[in-house]
């Protein structure tokens, strides 16, 4: 999925308050920026992923958290 496509889906998910989708989509976007080496922006997106995954009770919250911990951004 391209970043542009992800952004559109994220905006749509915000619009309809689809929290589980927000968790999944931000996680994908965060991982894309990790791959690009833009860690600050990746952690910004992964923080959103972590929050929405937590809110939705998704196990992927731990994936996001693990990456954030790895970069010293979460505990």
């Amino acid at each position: 999925m391209t970043l542009e496509c992800l952004n559109k889906k994220i905006l749509k998910a915000h619009e309809i308050k689809d929290v589980p989708s927000l968790g999944h989509l931000y996680l994908k976007a965060g991982k894309l920026f990790v791959d690009k080496g833009d860690i600050d922006h990746a952690c910004f997106l992964l923080t959103a992923a972590y929050v929405f995954c937590l809110e939705a009770g998704l196990t992927e919250a731990e994936d996001a958290r693990a990456i954030l911990i790895n970069y010293g951004r979460e505990e």
Binding site: D40, C43, F44, T47, Y50, V51, L54, L68, R73, E74
Partner: peptide, 14 residues
């Protein structure tokens, strides 16, 4: 309290 997003700056939660 489980999460404090961006509390230490963007993408920094501590």
């Amino acid at each position: 309290l489980r999460s404090t997003p961006h509390a230490g700056g963007p993408g920094r939660n501590l």
